[in-house]
Design a protein around this nucleic acid. Sequence first.
DNA 1: CGCCAGGTTGAAGTTCCTCAAAATTTGTGG
DNA 2: CCACAAATTTTGAGGAACTTCAACCTGGCG
Lengths: 245, 245
Amino acid sequence: MNSQTEPIELLIDRLHRASGLDYETLAPLRTLPASIREFSRNQTIAHEGERLDQCMLLLDGFLVRSLDTREGDRQILSFYVPGDIPDLLTLELPTMDHSVACISDAKVAVIPHAPLREICDRSSAITFALWRETLIDGEITRRWVRNLGRLQARERIAHVLCELYIRLDAVGLASQPIHLPVTQSDFADAMGLTAVSVNRAFKELREEGAVTVSRRELVIHNWPRLAHIAQFDPIYLHLPPTAGS
Amino acid sequence: MNSQTEPIELLIDRLHRASGLDYETLAPLRTLPASIREFSRNQTIAHEGERLDQCMLLLDGFLVRSLDTREGDRQILSFYVPGDIPDLLTLELPTMDHSVACISDAKVAVIPHAPLREICDRSSAITFALWRETLIDGEITRRWVRNLGRLQARERIAHVLCELYIRLDAVGLASQPIHLPVTQSDFADAMGLTAVSVNRAFKELREEGAVTVSRRELVIHNWPRLAHIAQFDPIYLHLPPTAGS
DNA sequence: CGCCAGGTTGAAGTTCCTCAAAATTTGTGG
DNA sequence: CCACAAATTTTGAGGAACTTCAACCTGGCG
């Protein structure tokens, strides 16, 4: 994901690839204004209860959605990688019922709702393409439910590594070693575990020769083994046939 | 949810209430064909991998989405109650990556994709209203992730009872005792537990005076207590102001 | 150089699971 | 409507997975 490119062109390319729309159909998006904003690690971008009138296209860095318990335990609900539009759903559900935060320094392109909605009013193809993005987001979340409910710690960790690898690969960010600005604590909060368990899961995966994760860098030594441990099947990501492994 | 009414009118009423669209805007939906189909308990309606060219509006009974592990453990990903359109997402993602099944006898109205899509092409308001339905489905799933990841067995069970109560109330099916055709095994598969743990959770909730669940009937004795145990906040359901508790 | 966030490891405790048996309810055919 | 079978619920006892607590290590950075 080259953030030098015009952000709107990135969005257009993504929708072209994901939904197969031609550039002419997507052309109206070129009228969208987009201002760049930068955030630093651990900054909360959108708070629970807040009402948004804009969306963010993530250009650089990793974001998460998260929701805490009363006791203050954090649960990460999804990871977002460059190219994603984490709060696209606010176009129709403007009130946040959870938070969006940075787990690394991040750069985003801010797109106001109003002009985006006008484009949607005129182009059902674009609306469907955006709808599709939110549906895939939902499919990922559903897969997490299965993983949290029925897989063991080591399998869950393997699965989230598979997911992130494939998603990063789809935007050209998966050359090994893969930069993953995600602490073991973050993985714990995502997979319903503690940092200690995550650490032990990584150790097992390392000793099995599947992956090495160290210093925010992931090396996949044996993809079939990792995918097997994770019970990973990328179909749920609904990627275009060209992308993915 | 009165299934004697024309199914399409039910859909129109739902979108009117949820998205605030007037009946004139929703009128094009009246041209939709809808055929009634009935299913019996434990029947799988849509299988993983299947490609669908129609959606179902649930008229009577309960459906679930589910996804199994390699070992055959089932994880329920969501419950659907009358008025819901469980596979609306297939309009844009026709290939199922998990299954939809009946946990009770069920009656659905089948709506082919093609005419629905044509209506969407002409009415962005209707498209947004349908999009919204799938977004709320996603919000519910996200809440489950938090619950599976960070709440204890008793709290998770309390939460799913709260969720079902509010959702049933929104369609007029929440008069006590509330009919819930969900076995303890189903609750276990939904909350990432075993039937034994679910049984013990129910026992605790009963002894605390919160709820009684027996013979597929739910009685809520102390709603504030139940909601407190569950850390339940209905905002995530994005119901219209009139509905809900 | 020393602080500090993050990573690693061990030991003990807790929650939930597994296994097993009995009680109860539901469904079915006569 | 009864009798029997199947499914579901309930309870107990023991075990496994994960958490908690605590200590120590490591590397990056002021």
